[in-house]
Design a protein around this nucleic acid. Structure first.
Lengths: 269, 269
DNA sequence: AATCATAAACGATCATAAACAATCATAAAA
DNA sequence: TTTTATGATTGTTTATGATCGTTTATGATT
C-alpha cells in the first residue's frame, strides 16, 4: 500500500475512534510496525494527529465527530473491539472485484476500515459508509436513491423502482438487533424497510452479530434464519445457540479477537 | 499514445483515486516508467497535480473535510466572491418548505452555506452538497441512486427508473460551462447526463453562471435558452448578452457582490 | 506502598527492494 | 537534416521490514 494511502487510512482510523493502536493499523494496511510508527511520527510532526504510546489519537477529541465518525457512547466502546474483529472477518470473505452489499449499522460500519485497500464494488445504503469509502479507498461506491435519514444515517426511498433493483451482489452484509430461533430481528422500522429492499439482491446473506445479540429477542422480525447463509459472531456464542444455528443450516464464523482485541468477552453477563 | 492523451489519462486517474502510482499509469498508458515520470514532473510544475514518491496525487485530495471546505484552484479563487454572491442570490429565491433541485458543480456548491439556516427539501446529485447539508443544516436531503463518480463528485445511474422520477420541484438550480445564443453548454458528458435526468423534474430552471461563462462557447449543448427561466450572473454581463437573454424570455438577475459579502469573506475566518 | 517479573512498545540499525535521476541510443517529428 | 520524444541502462537514493537491545507499562507479590 502506498504511503499516501496509509496516511489516509491512519487519519480516518484515528478520527473514528478514541485511539488507533499500531497493531490495528498494521492489520488495516498490511504493513509492518516499523512503517506504521514512521507514518505516525511523520503525521505527528505534520500536526495531523497526536502520537501516543501504543498508537495515535486525533487532535480533536471525539466529542465533536462530524458526519462521518459517529459520536462515541460508552455503550459502543465496550463492544467496539468485538465489532472490529467481526467486521474484519466479514471483509476477509471478500476478494478484489467482488460485488457486495453493505447495510447500514454500527457493526457493518467497521468494515470500511478493512476495505481500505480492497477494490470491490460496494453497494450501500449507509451514507457514512459511502462517504468513507469514497474518500479513503479505491472501491467503487454505489448508493440507492432516497431521503437521507439523519438519525439512522441511511438512504431510504419509499419507491420500489430505484437503482437497487439493478444491483445484484454475491454477498450482502448486515447487522442485527437480535437473533433467535424465530429469525433475525431489528429494532428500527426504518432499518427493516431498508434491509428488506436489499434482501433479495444477493446470493448469500451474511449477518454480523456479536454474541450479545443472541440474548436480545423482541422487536420486529426481519427474516427467518433459513434465509441467512452465514453468521459472524464472537466466542461468547453459547453452544445451544450455535446448535440452533447449525440446525437451521446457518454457517457460523467465530471471529477471533486477535492481539489488538484482547478486550475479553468472557464477562458477558 | 500521445502526450496530451497521456496527460488526460493521468489527470483523470489521479482525481478518481487517492494516489495513482507510476506502475499503474504505465499499465494504463502502455508506455515506460521514464515517460510517466516526465509527464508527472511536467504536470507538477504546471500545477495540475502534486508529485509524490511512487506516483502522483490530486491537488485536492478527496478527504472528508475536502467535501466540506474544498480548497479552490488559483483559477477559481478569482471568481469565488462572484460565485458566492450568485449562490446567495439563488438561495434568496427559496423559502422555507420549498422543494428544490441542486445540480452538482462548483458554483452551486456555494449555495450550501446560504442554505444553512433554511429548511427546504433539497434534491441533489452532488455528494458533497448532500454531505454538507446533512451535517450542517436542517434541510431534508434527497439523493438519486447510482454510482458515485469521484472526479465529478456526482451520483449518476445508467437506469431510468430511480427515485428521480418521483421528485418534482419548483426550481432547479444548475451551473454551466458556457452560455450562448445556442443554449447552455457543459464540458463534461457525465454532467450532461446527470443534468438531463433532472431537467424535466422542475417548473423553473435557474442557471448560475458568472459573466465569464458567456465567452466560453463550445462543448456539448445541454439545453436551449428558451428552456431556462432565470439566469443569475454578475455585473460583468455585456449588454448584448443581456439583450440576447431577454429576447429569449430569460429572466436575468445580477447578483451584486456588495460590501456585505466582501466583509463577510474577509473577516470570517 | 514498594518491588519485581513480564510483556508490550519503542528506537536504532541494517539488508533488501523499490523508486528515482541521469545518461545515452534510438525512433519519430519538424 | 535537426529537433524532439521515448525507452533502456546505469548508478543512486529512498522506503520498507526484520532484528536487535532498551524503555515503559502492567499487575502480581510481598
Amino acid at each position: 500500500m502506498h504511503e499516501r494511502e496509509r496516511h489516509r487510512v491512519i487519519l480516518s482510523a484515528v478520527q473514528s475512534r478514541p485511539v488507533a493502536t499500531v497493531t490495528e493499523l498494521v492489520e488495516l494496511t498490511e504493513t509492518s510496525e516499523a512503517t506504521i510508527r514512521r507514518d505516525i511520527a511523520a503525521l505527528h510532526v505534520q500536526g495531523k494527529l497526536r502520537r501516543v504510546r501504543g498508537g495515535a489519537e486525533a487532535l480533536t477529541p471525539p466529542t465533536q465527530a462530524g458526519l462521518i465518525g459517529r459520536p462515541f457512547s460508552v455503550n459502543e466502546t465496550i463492544n467496539i473491539n468485538l465489532k472490529r474483529a467481526i467486521a474484519k472477518a466479514a471483509v476477509e470473505m471478500c476478494a478484489d472485484g467482488d460485488s457486495i452489499i453493505i447495510n447500514g449499522g454500527t457493526t457493518t460500519y467497521q468494515m470500511v476500515f478493512h476495505l481500505a485497500h480492497r477494490r470491490c464494488q460496494v453497494f450501500t445504503n449507509s451514507f457514512p459508509i459511502a462517504s468513507h469509502l469514497l474518500a479513503n479507498s479505491r472501491n467503487s461506491v454505489i448508493v440507492p436513491g432516497g431521503t437521507i435519514y439523519r438519525e439512522q444515517n441511511i438512504i431510504l426511498s419509499p419507491f420500489e423502482s430505484d437503482v437497487t433493483k439493478h444491483f445484484y451482489a454475491r454477498r450482502m452484509f448486515m447487522g442485527a438487533q437480535g437473533i433467535g430461533a424465530h429469525g433475525v430481528t431489528e429494532a428500527d422500522p426504518l432499518l427493516i424497510q431498508a434491509e428488506n429492499k436489499l434482501l433479495n439482491q444477493a446470493d448469500e446473506l451474511v449477518v454480523l452479530a456479536d454474541s450479545s445479540k443472541f440474548k436480545q429477542r423482541s422487536s420486529l422480525i426481519l427474516c427467518r434464519l433459513e434465509r441467512v447463509h452465514t453468521i459472524i459472531t464472537d466466542r461468547g456464542l453459547r453452544d445451544e445457540d450455535r446448535q440452533m444455528l447449525e440446525d437451521k443450516g446457518v454457517d457460523v464464523i467465530v471471529a477471533e479477537a486477535g492481539e489488538a482485541e484482547k478486550q475479553e468477552s468472557s464477562s458477558v453477563a
